[in-house]
Write a protein that binds this DNA or RNA. Structure first.
Lengths: 219, 219
DNA sequence: CCAATAGTGTCTATGAGACATTATAGT
DNA sequence: ACTATAATGTCTCATAGACACTATTGG
């Protein structure tokens, strides 16, 4: 006879604002950890959730109104001390969205805070955020993961800046452009330019075919 | 009121034999999947297991007699179809051991089969093995992970061969030795030599301090 | 013309891969 | 001396990084 355990899904939803990675949180209304900030999440409902990924998307939609970000399973935390009520399991995910997606959503109830300087979170959600940051930073060094933090169309300068903010290092412009353009995972948008006060920049996008493919070249 | 779910832990225990990665399996005595081969695993016992890692080590010890391999959480599989009895969760791990460790253990009840050519396994254990292979191969390209498949002491030729077997490619001897020796994560054992019929080779070991550190350099 | 950003060209140092050569054991 | 493996040396080619330079907009 197996022992049954409460299983929840929690999502570290990350975005880039003011030049830093930020986490989307909400304030808990009920105990335990009433009043503390927590990641969007909740218990799996075996009747409505097909699998853990579906549960994660349901939580995201319910708590943030976001429908289709990049979501990936991160790590599972399972022990007797993460929830004061006893042994529990959290299947954690991380998700990336471009910050404009968060504008319209129910940002009234949400708090979006810099990932590096968070207050103490509910449960072991600090650990989850730490793991998400580590994963994103590692993976960004050799993949196109940071592109999910960009809007549909973007300039190469924006793209480079995104990589720099995620990785925390300055990159050489020339080398960056060479690799990105040779790798062929961005597509030039014919004629489209984005102009500021100065010379306008070519706009690019990720080809739809590659939207879900993580190309692995060092940038 | 959270719904409680049966949570198990399964371990893909890998080793290198006859030049290929092999998986340690046992034959199930009870339904479901009675008579089928399965990964070592079982339900979490909330009274004896501190956390998921402890549960994994307990399963390994109980089913294979192995006490201290390299173990790492792999991925969690959670859906309603992986177990015919209904919604279930498996926190899966992978582990690496040098094949000599398996000699003494209860190899009588165990079957050790090539990972590339397995029969259909119980539950979704095929998926778990596939994920473990992918993870090990990916990680091996930029880390010292394959060293956990080697015995305590080894020659550089054995080490190179291990990498070649895991990665499935031939490596250049000169370049391999350069990188391994410069990286400083192997330690020469003074005077120790392993001789066959021909010129004996220097023996090396992983310094105790680095035993658990995965150095990340391309090999 | 100036400021500011977009985009390109070139040089160099590093290091991976290919391959040749030397070293040392047993028979 | 011969064979097989261990170990080292050298050359070349690709490329990352540094940096300088040119291009194009608004004011």
């Amino acid at each position: 006879m197996p022992q049954a355990i409460a299983v929840s899904v929690d999502v570290a939803l990350l975005t880039l604002r003011e030049g830093r990675l930020q986490v989307v949180l909400y304030r808990r209304e009920n105990p335990p950890f009433q009043g503390a900030l927590a990641l969007p999440g909740g218990y799996i409902h075996t009747d409505e959730d097909e699998d853990d990924g579906a549960a994660a998307r349901r939580m995201l939609l319910a708590k943030t109104g976001i429908r289709t970000p990049y979501v990936e399973q991160l790590k599972t935390f399972a022990d007797r001390s993460r929830d004061p009520r006893g042994w529990s399991v959290s299947i954690s995910f991380y998700a990336l969205v471009d910050s404009t997606v968060l504008e319209g959503s129910r940002s009234a109830v949400l708090e979006i805070l810099p990932a590096d300087a968070l207050p103490r979170l509910a449960f072991d959600h600090d650990r989850i955020v730490a793991a998400a940051l580590e994963r994103v930073r590692n993976k960004s060094a050799y993949s196109t993961l940071p592109c999910y933090l960009l809007p549909e169309t973007f300039t190469l300068s924006q793209m480079q800046s995104t990589y720099e903010q995620v990785l925390g290092v300055k990159l050489d412009k020339s080398a960056f452009r060479r690799k990105v353009l040779n790798s062929g995972f961005v597509e030039e948008i014919e004629g489209a330019m984005q102009g500021g006060v100065h010379r306008p920049a070519q706009l690019y996008r990720i080809p739809q075919a590659q939207r879900l493919v993580l190309r692995t070249r060092t940038l």
